[in-house]
């Protein structure tokens, strides 16, 4: 990787939406919108509500399906000279495996991020990510058909995220990314109704960062595979916190909505911080908390 900064799935489209603002090849990796075996319309509007220091969404994995991705989107993005990674979601173990197998055949996709933690769809996504057994089963099935780098995205909406991380490591994951959004709810008190169409949604933005840092720290103590940290990163200093907690790369999500150039700013800011502290690379600070 050119630098440890990637974009979080669902916040950066397929990258091309941001090409007017940044040189996409200056970003370490671009994780494109969650892709499922079948096309999905997603949830009804409203899908988003703002809060102090963050937002909630319940998009519900709207996408045109893996076949459309392979035929129409992949040709548009395959020559972008950075790590183009596909986020894969599903509703059954077979879904995940079939979707991963099709993406395995695409030469210029070096990795997938397996989303076993989407809080916004019924009967799926997060259902696999909330127990070590469920997580292990889906990762094992995908591992059998997927030969490239397999990153597994974990949910914070669990009792022990470290146990889940350990299970997916044992099932063959090459890395874990965390955290997905935190399940939340906002009520319109005049209408006495939830604001979001499906009542609950996934909370993101700077408000969730301490939860994410804590999760990374706990997972880092439990596993030996690399950790990709995400959750509320808005600045290079935020990213440094994740490195110190034990992440060796990070993803930027919601901040892309506020500043479409944030990825490159954070990547440059990380280098400046490392220079000021006499470090040659991020690896020197990964998990390097004092005491």
């Amino acid at each position: 990787m050119k630098n440890p900064v990637m974009t979080a799935s669902g916040t950066f489209g397929y990258g091309v939406e941001f090409a007017d603002f940044v040189n996409l090849e200056d970003i370490g990796g671009i994780i494109v919108k969650g892709t499922t075996l079948q096309p999905r319309e997603g949830n009804d509007y409203p899908r988003m509500v703002e809060m102090a220091s963050g937002m909630l969404n319940c998009v519900g994995l709207q996408n045109k399906g893996v076949d459309y991705f392979c035929e129409h989107i992949y040709p548009e993005i395959k020559d972008i000279q950075t790590n183009m990674i596909v986020n894969v979601s599903g509703f059954s173990i077979d879904d995940y495996a079939e979707c991963a197998a099709r993406i395995n055949a695409l030469d210029n996709i070096p990795a997938i991020e397996l989303n076993i933690s989407c809080p916004n769809v019924k009967h799926g996504g997060m259902a696999f990510g909330v127990t070590p057994e469920g997580a292990s089963a889906v990762v094992k099935a995908v591992r059998e058909v997927y030969q490239k780098t397999l990153i597994v995205k974990l949910s914070p909406n669990v009792t022990s995220i470290a146990d889940i991380a350990l299970a997916v490591q044992d099932a063959g994951a090459d890395a874990v990314s965390l955290i997905n959004t935190i399940m939340g709810m906002v009520i319109d008190i005049e209408k006495r109704k939830p604001v979001l169409s499906i009542a609950t949604g996934g909370m993101s933005g700077p408000a969730v960062k301490p939860v994410a840092v804590r999760c990374v720290w706990q997972v880092a103590k439990a596993v030996h595979i690399p950790i990709v940290g995400l959750g509320g990163i808005m600045t290079a200093e935020d990213a440094i916190e994740f490195f110190l907690a034990g992440a060796s790369a990070i993803e930027i999500g919601t901040a892309n909505f506020i500043d479409p150039t944030i990825t490159v700013k954070v990547a440059n800011g990380i280098n400046d911080w490392l220079d000021r502290h006499g470090c040659k690379s991020v690896n020197e600070i990964v998990g390097q908390l004092d005491g």
């Binding site: 009804d44 509007y45 988003m48 919601t254």
Partner: peptide, 27 residues
């Protein structure tokens, strides 16, 4: 003027139901 976040067609929050399915009002 649906409520929107990114304004660029990336987050898929501001969708409107159309004859072509859910599409982003922003894009």
């Amino acid at each position: 003027e649906n409520m929107m976040a990114c304004g660029l067609g990336a987050c898929l929050c501001c969708v409107e139901k159309t004859v072509k399915g859910n599409v982003c009002v922003c894009k």
